[in-house]
Simulated assay, not measured.
Amino acid sequence: MFKKTASILLAITLCVTALTACSQQDTGQSAVFTADSPNQDTPLQQGSHYPLNLIIYDNKGNKLQQTIEKEPERIVVIGQGLAELMIHFGEENRIVGLAYLDNSYSKYEDQIKQLPLLTEMWPSKESIIALKPDLIVAMSSAFTDERLGNISFWNERGISVLTGINYTVGRTVDSFFDDINNLGMALNIEEKTNAFVEEQQTRIKSIQDKAAQVTEKPRVLLFAGGQNDTYYYYGPTLCLIDEMVEGAGGEYIKVSEDTYVEMSAESILAVNPDKIIMTEFQKSDSATAKDLLLNNPGLKNVAAIKSGNVIIVDYTNAIRGSLDLADLYEDVAEFVHPELFKGE
Rank of each mutant, 00 (worst) to 15 (best):
K3G: 04
T5N: 13
L9P: 02
A11G: 15
A11W: 03
I12Q: 11
C15N: 13
C22K: 11
Q24R: 14
Q25E: 08
G28C: 08
Q29S: 06
A31I: 11
N39G: 12
P43C: 04
Q46S: 14
G47S: 09
G47A: 12
H49S: 10
I55M: 12
I56M: 03
Y57D: 12
K60P: 00
K63R: 15
K70S: 11
P72C: 10
P72Y: 04
V77W: 07
G79N: 09
E84P: 03
E92H: 08
E92M: 14
R94G: 04
G97R: 07
N103L: 09
Y105G: 03
S106H: 05
Y108A: 00
E109D: 09
D110Q: 15
Q114E: 14
L117N: 09
L118R: 04
E120N: 05
M121A: 12
E126Y: 00
I129P: 07
A130K: 09
L131G: 07
K132E: 10
P133E: 03
V137A: 13
A142G: 12
A142C: 08
F143K: 05
D145R: 11
E146M: 06
L148M: 08
G149D: 07
G149C: 03
N150C: 00
I151H: 10
S152V: 15
F153M: 07
N155M: 07
R157G: 07
R157I: 02
R157K: 13
R157F: 08
I159R: 05
S160R: 05
V161F: 04
G164I: 02
N166K: 12
V169N: 00
R171Y: 09
D174W: 07
S175M: 13
F177K: 04
F177G: 03
F177V: 01
D179F: 14
N182R: 07
L183H: 01
G184Y: 00
G184W: 00
M185R: 00
M185C: 02
N188M: 03
T193E: 02
T193V: 03
N194R: 06
A195Q: 13
A195N: 09
E198P: 01
Q201D: 09
T202E: 14
K205Y: 05
A212M: 13
K217M: 03
L222M: 13
A224T: 14
G226W: 01
Q227P: 01
N228M: 06
D229M: 09
T237D: 11
T237F: 06
E243N: 04
A248S: 14
G249P: 10
I253M: 11
K254T: 13
V255I: 14
V255E: 00
S256M: 05
T259Q: 06
Y260L: 14
V261P: 00
S264E: 06
S264C: 08
S264N: 06
L269W: 02
L269H: 03
A270P: 05
N272A: 15
I277R: 06
T279Y: 08
F281C: 01
T288D: 05
K290N: 01
L292G: 06
L292N: 13
N295Y: 07
P297W: 06
P297N: 06
K300W: 00
K300T: 01
K300Q: 10
V302Y: 01
I305C: 08
G308V: 09
G308M: 06
I311G: 04
V313K: 04
D314H: 05
T316D: 10
R320P: 00
G321I: 01
L323G: 07
D327C: 06
E330N: 10
A333M: 05
P338C: 01
L340P: 04
K342R: 12
